[in-house]
Design a protein around this nucleic acid. Structure first.
Lengths: 102, 102
DNA sequence: GTTATATTTGTCATTATTTGGCAAGTCATT
DNA sequence: AATGACTTGCCAAATAATGACAAATATAAC
């Protein structure tokens, strides 16, 4: 399993010399929960990612990208057609971007 | 929403001149359910996709690819960082492929 | 090796989401 | 208006995700 997101969280947290038990309360989760998120055992909600960014002095988009990437990778990883599917999906998303609205 | 998978199903089914009520029993689902799958209102299970392939005279991998692509696109579509995340995820998946095992 | 602190593990009840099926609906054709 | 093809709406059951807690395991200091 990949968990680039969680790895980044841990890396940033340690860079700031912050403990799980210090950060967790700021996010309204308990310490074990944050631990699980960092290790990829639990999924963070988007809102939590956004609240985390300033605490870890990271750009929200950077964290969101890794957060989403892990989810996508999890889907694609255990299928033989994973990479092809991603190509198709990419075109699909690009196309949808052109016509603004959802 | 995209639904390339469902669109392909319908296209193939019509090419074979098959009716929903003919195909559905072969898959052990009822007609409304298959209708919903074709319209992307319900997700097909992987196993159903595989059983569908021979009926519609399609390559399993072709259907699986679209089926997965829709799921990935659904994840990425409503995030601004969707495309970037897909790039990251792609690298992630490629990397995992190199080290065989999960 | 005992104490203290940080993190992880395991379990659980609650909540949310997904699923599959049915009854009834629409739409078109005859 | 009857038939045939498909769709819609709704619901109960199954499944998965969530958050919390107690307990367990490090890790390090003394």
């Amino acid at each position: 399993m990949s968990n680039q997101f969680g790895n980044k969280l841990r890396e940033l947290r340690e860079q700031q010399n912050l403990l799980l038990r210090q950060v967790a309360p700021l996010l309204d989760v308990d310490t074990p929960m944050l631990s699980k998120i960092e290790r990829g055992e639990r999924q963070a909600k988007k809102e939590l990612v956004l609240r985390l960014a300033p605490i870890l002095k990271a750009k929200p988009d950077e964290l969101l990208t890794l957060w989403l990437a892990d989810q996508i990778a999890a889907l694609a990883a255990d299928e033989e057609v994973g990479l092809q599917a991603m190509q198709v999906a990419e075109e699909e998303v690009k196309y949808q971007k052109t016509k603004k609205k959802k």
